[in-house]
Lab assay of single mutants.
Amino acid sequence: MATGGRRGAAAAPLLVAVAALLLGAAGHLYPGEVCPGMDIRNNLTRLHELENCSVIEGHLQILLMFKTRPEDFRDLSFPKLIMITDYLLLFRVYGLESLKDLFPNLTVIRGSRLFFNYALVIFEMVHLKELGLYNLMNITRGSVRIEKNNELCYLATIDWSRILDSVEDNYIVLNKDDNEECGDICPGTAKGKTNCPATVINGQFVERCWTHSHCQKVCPTICKSHGCTAEGLCCHSECLGNCSQPDDPTKCVACRNFYLDGRCVETCPPPYYHFQDWRCVNFSFCQDLHHKCKNSRRQGCHQYVIHNNKCIPECPSGYTMNSSNLLCTPCLGPCPKVCHLLEGEKTIDSVTSAQELRGCTVINGSLIINIRGGNNLAAELEANLGLIEEISGYLKIRRSYALVSLSFFRKLRLIRGETLEIGNYSFYALDNQNLRQLWDWSKHNLTITQGKLFFHYNPKLCLSEIHKMEEVSGTKGRQERNDIALKTNGDQASCENELLKFSYIRTSFDKI
């Protein structure tokens, strides 16, 4: 039985969820670079991206490699990797027998973001014989899940209580170790020597080791999670996991709180800001991140802002960003909400898709409305799209047979046209069989910064309504002859009103 693990408890099935942008060198404390989270699957090609990484700022997932063999891993080693800020997950990587050479110096898994409450997941690794993470000293947050690894031993010899604050939620089941077939031998045991430290858990006094050649490092209890030197002297209180010299914040392997210019500090002093819960960055760093993602459509890219001495992905609820200094300031009234469309555009074809934009005031991208039916549609669209004030790209209304009016965009005031449909149009209306009105132009103002209007096959939309939009939106004169079809717009509506004058002759039985 794995020490510190839980057996036999019912657990939810383990679901495996399925960018080499360097964020800056980590400095003297770390020998390499800070790398983003990685999802490495199918083959070993991307694994080489770990070569210079000291910190993975995010998670590391290595999974679904069915053609790899043990010899493929023999020359692979990433000794610079010290810390993973989120979680480490391995799933069905064939041929991998140990992690001792792959990650010989991995010391800390912070667990800032977890995989279903777990910071370390080893699942269905069919050839893994031992973990071998002999320098792993601290899992700051989260638990361990090690399950269905039929060859995995050296679990009962690990004292997880020396690595985690609590072992109650560890789930370590259905491994070879369960069948008591392992016969784990710690260093020196074969020669009758006791080389590794022994600890007591559940009444068992057991030597602690990761492999037959690597003991588990056990520091004096007084050192807590700070770690200790090879001689057993406690590291500085700002260290986490390990250090090369005692009581020196510049000799830590990793930091308990924050890293700044080669030393570990309790908090980031001005003019620095907390970033990702582990390091200090200056304003320029946060500003660069903001600008890199301002026009990016890459998933996970955030326009970072500053709030409460932190550089964070977005302002919290009730705050909006001051564009001059990136500071989050309290909103006066309802907060603006910028919604970034991942692929640059979004099609609204149902109430469900409209709900995804609920509360958005600025759309960074283009909207395509293609709704053919739905219950209580006008009210639903207004509830979900009615706060949109600005669209950076274009607005396209296409084959939306259920629409009679666009009044559900009740606050839309600006279409920038930074991206144009077919390279020309910022407003595009095609084949809307029941569209009769755009907006009530006596109450609604709309500016279209650039781009043209396109109207074709809107049989109940009168040309007068379209011409009014040209005047109000500032697009009059931009359109070419064929942009607004004269014969297919309003051709099934009563669009022309003329005053009919009647004269009559009164007659009676005795007068003409």
Rank of each mutant, 00 (worst) to 15 (best):
P271E: 05
I62E: 01
T189M: 14
Y304S: 02
Q287W: 13
Q245N: 13
M65E: 13
G142E: 00
S237L: 11
I84A: 00
L164E: 01
V144A: 09
Q245H: 10
N309T: 10
G203D: 02
S237G: 14
D277Y: 15
D159I: 13
R256M: 14
G111F: 01
V144G: 02
C280H: 00
S317W: 04
V167A: 12
D165R: 08
I139P: 01
K251R: 12
C235M: 00
S317T: 13
P271R: 10
L174N: 13
C280F: 01
M137P: 01
Q245T: 07
I82Y: 13
P70V: 14
G300L: 11
N309W: 13
D184E: 14
N149Y: 00
Q299S: 05
N242R: 12
C255E: 00
K294L: 03
T189A: 06
S324N: 09
D169N: 15
C186T: 07
H59W: 11
M137N: 09
V206H: 04
V108L: 10
N43D: 12
S98D: 01
F66Y: 13
Y87D: 00
G132M: 01
G241P: 01
P336V: 11
E207L: 11
I82L: 10
C53S: 00
S284M: 09
C153Q: 07
E314H: 03
L99A: 06
P79F: 04
E207S: 06
E207A: 05
T320Q: 10
M83F: 04
C264K: 00
S225M: 05
P316D: 13
C328M: 01
Q245E: 14
T140H: 07
R279N: 08
P269C: 01
G300I: 11
L90E: 00
I146M: 10
I185V: 15
P79V: 04
T85G: 04
C223S: 02
Y171P: 05
C255Q: 00
P249D: 11
I139S: 00
K100Y: 05
C235S: 00
Y259R: 04
V121L: 03
A198N: 14
N202W: 12
D169V: 09
G203Y: 14
N149L: 00
N42A: 12
V108H: 13
D184S: 08
L120I: 04
M321Q: 12
I312M: 05
L29N: 10
E49K: 09
R46S: 12
C153K: 03
H28F: 09
V265F: 03
G183F: 10
I146G: 00
D165F: 14
L89F: 10
N202V: 05
S237C: 10
T194P: 14
K310A: 09
S112D: 10
C331S: 03
C219K: 02
L164F: 15
F275Y: 04
L50V: 06
L50G: 02
V253L: 15
H28A: 14
N282W: 00
R297F: 12
I56V: 04
N242Q: 14
P271N: 04
V200I: 08
Q216R: 03
C235F: 00
L102C: 02
D86L: 00
E71Q: 03
K292P: 04
D247T: 06
D86S: 06
V121C: 15
C255F: 00
C153S: 03
T189W: 03
T229S: 09
S225H: 11
C53W: 00
N43G: 08
F115S: 07
N138A: 13
